[in-house]
Amino acid sequence: MRSARRSVVFEVVTRLVFHAVIIYSIYIMLVGHYEPGGGFAGGLIAGLALMVRYLVGGRKELDAAAPVDAGLVLGLGLAVAALAGLLPTLLGGGVLQSAIIDIPLGPLGELHLVTSVFFDIGVYLVVIGLALDVLRSLGGGIDQHVADEDEAVGV
C-alpha cells in the first residue's frame, strides 16, 4: 500500500471505530453461552477489524493497532486453552470440565461465571493470532518483498 493511496479520513475513522469493534468482539465472545457468538466469532470480528486497519494503513498501522508478536498471541491462546483443560484435572475434576460459579456482587446482583469462558478466551486469542499472523505474512511480508523488488529493479 503506497502512502499516496491512503485516505487520511478513512484512516482516522477506522482508528476511532477500531476500539469499539474490539470491545464488541469481546462482548460477542462472552455472550456466546447465551446467544450466537463465542470465541470464534469474537476472534474473527477482532481479526477483521485488524484487517481493516491494515488495508487502510498498511504495516505501520497494523503494528500500531496490535503492537504484539503474533506468535505470542497464538502461543498464549493455545496455552490458555490447554491449561483450561488441564487445571480442572489437577483440581480433581475431569479434563476440560467446567464449573458454574455464581459470584455475589452485592447490590449489582451476581456474576454467573462458567469456567469454560476461559477456554473461550483461548479460542479468541488464537483466532486473533491467526489474523495477525496472516496479515503480517501475506500482508506485510509481501509488502516487504514488493519493496525489496522495487529496490532491486531501481538499482
Partner: peptide, 12 residues
C-alpha cells in the same frame, strides 16, 4: 451453564 447449545458444544 449456558443456553446457546452450539457454543456449549464447542467449548464444553
Amino acid at each position: 451453564g449456558g443456553y446457546n447449545i452450539v457454543n456449549i458444544t464447542l467449548v464444553d
